[in-house]
Amino acid sequence: MRKIKYKIIVLLTHIFPEELLTKIAYRLKMKKKLNLRNPSSFNEKLQWLKINWQRRVISDCADKLLVRDYVIKKNLKHTLIELYAVYKNVDDIDWKNLPEKYVIKTTNSCGTNIIVRDSKSIDIKSTKSLLKTWLSEDYGREHLEFQYSKIDPSIIIEEFIESDLPLPQDYKFFCFNGIPKFILCIDERDLGTGKKKKGFYNLEWEYLDYIDEKKSTVLKNAKRPENLDDMIQAAKILSEDFPFVRVDLYSEKGRVIFGELTFTPMGGMANYFKGDTDLEIGTYLELPQKKYKGYVR
């Protein structure tokens, strides 16, 4: 069923304009009309950026491999985890020479990660099959986030981040015109079900009542990272070229670790916000005057 749905959506993106499909998807998900002429909410402004600010740097920084060059350019190489290998073809992976623990990712989408805690127990056949599927699919067209469609699909194998938790706490800095405004902390993730707790905090690590508890499990007492000031500074540097970007970081044993840059969180259709929070956050985002199309260099 998913394969059929995927093929239909991709076909539609080749037939109908991006803006029309975005409006339809927004109506179905958010249960309201998308105002692109005069956007006011955070979600609406993300949709405007998605359609009207298609700069190549967005696509390059959404690429899990090329973004490393951007981080280095910003003099933050020390935040990068070790890159073990890059492959274009699944069959070229040298499984025998990989360390005991590592993480496999594809560069052209979101959520396509495989965490390997014991290299001896990995099912190589099923892993290769999954990776081939991920590489063949156009995540950008499927989710109407076309920055991903411009990425050359590759497989990267990276260092496993050691943590006292099953997975390290994830700190997502929402940055507007180069200024971090607040942080989404993700913790207590269930590896089996994918469920997790999340909570928003300001830069002083005070809890922000942004989440509708009927739609999401909240995290109200997350531990403040000991190097929060260093993380804020890294987020400032990495976000300075964009109207909006979410800078995802980790903090382990006093070290700031780069995760990724996300330009359209939840595809610009986050429906878990409480009350007028979506509108409040929208006031932080000043849309640029100049428009760009096509993600050309």
Rank of each mutant, 00 (worst) to 15 (best):
E19C: 09
E19I: 12
L21E: 06
L21G: 08
L21C: 08
L21F: 06
T22A: 10
T22P: 02
T22M: 13
T22L: 14
T22F: 01
K23L: 11
K23W: 10
K23E: 13
I24H: 07
I24M: 14
I24D: 09
I24Q: 10
A25P: 03
A25G: 09
A25F: 11
Y26M: 06
Y26V: 03
R27K: 15
L28G: 05
L28M: 14
L28K: 14
L28H: 12
L28A: 13
L28C: 13
K29G: 09
K29T: 14
K29W: 09
M30G: 06
M30L: 10
K31V: 04
K32N: 11
K32L: 05
K32P: 04
K32V: 05
K32Q: 14
K33T: 15
K33P: 06
K33Y: 13
K33V: 15
K33C: 11
L34N: 10
L34D: 07
L34S: 08
L34Q: 08
N35P: 03
N35S: 11
R37Y: 12
N38M: 06
P39L: 05
P39W: 04
S40I: 13
S40Q: 15
S40M: 11
S40A: 12
S41L: 05
S41T: 15
S41Y: 03
S41R: 06
S41N: 04
F42H: 02
N43L: 02
N43W: 05
N43R: 01
N43S: 07
E44S: 04
E44W: 04
K45T: 08
K45H: 10
L46Q: 01
L46V: 04
L46A: 03
L46G: 00
W48M: 04
L49F: 05
L49W: 01
K50Y: 02
K50D: 06
I51R: 03
I51P: 00
I51W: 01
I51E: 01
N52Q: 08
N52H: 15
N52Y: 15
W53E: 01
W53Q: 05
Q54L: 07
R55F: 03
R55L: 01
R56Y: 12
V57L: 15
I58R: 00
I58Y: 03
S59K: 04
S59E: 01
D60R: 09
D60Q: 13
C61A: 10
C61V: 02
C61K: 00
C61W: 00
A62R: 03
A62L: 09
A62S: 15
D63N: 09
D63C: 07
K64D: 06
L65C: 08
L65N: 09
L66Y: 07
L66P: 00
L66R: 13
L66S: 11
V67N: 07
V67M: 13
V67E: 11
R68N: 00
R68D: 01
R68A: 02
R68Y: 02
D69F: 00
Y70D: 02
V71S: 01
V71L: 09
V71T: 05
I72W: 00
K73L: 08
K73M: 09
K73T: 04
K74E: 14
K74R: 14
K74C: 14
K74V: 08
K74F: 05
N75P: 04
N75A: 14
K77N: 12
K77T: 08
H78I: 09
H78W: 09
H78V: 10
T79D: 06
T79N: 08
L80Y: 03
L80W: 01
I81N: 15
I81C: 13
E82I: 11
E82L: 10
E82M: 10
L83A: 10
L83M: 12
L83Q: 10
